[in-house]
């Protein structure tokens, strides 16, 4: 990913910073400045808790370029406590079978490296099972 783009997305990637709609109170992630629920302007910053549950998941052995080092990996739709769903890898799963409904929490991990392309290593959110 290009440096300016990565820099621009840092808050979302490192801290799950989204938005809250001042009109209907919907929580929005990823942020987009227009509420997907009511269509009105929504720019109020909102910090998500990072807690949620697995909404759907799969496991990939055939990873795309930049992700081979982490393959095989599980990728999921995670439904956040506050409502929105995010796409993210699951991590620290161990031998536990992934299940729909499994409680998970956000952690920051290495997402990918660009190889020799730009020498960049990208960090961002992944989700791990909630430690009980």
């Amino acid at each position: 990913m290009e440096t300016p783009r990565h820099w621009r997305l840092k808050k979302q990637r490192y801290a799950l910073v989204g938005e809250e709609c001042p009109h209907c109170k919907a929580k929005i992630f990823p942020p987009r400045d227009v509420c997907p629920e009511c269509g009105l302007e929504a720019k109020t910053v909102y910090h998500f808790s990072g807690k949620g549950e697995v909404y759907s998941y799969t496991s990939l052995t055939d990873a795309p370029a930049g992700f081979q080092a982490s393959a095989p990996y599980a990728i999921a739709l995670v439904k956040l406590e506050e409502g929105p769903i995010v796409t993210a890898q699951l991590t620290d799963i161990g031998n536990e079978p992934v299940k729909i409904g499994m409680p998970v929490e956000m952690v920051t991990r290495k997402l990918r490296d660009d190889g020799d392309e730009r020498g960049m290593i990208i960090y961002g959110y992944k989700f791990r099972p909630v430690l009980s």
Partner: peptide, 19 residues
Amino acid sequence: YESSQGMTLQAQAALLAQR
């Protein structure tokens, strides 16, 4: 928010199928 997380076309279909 998808491909930068390691998502692929096949993974998308799989997420739908799993759900």
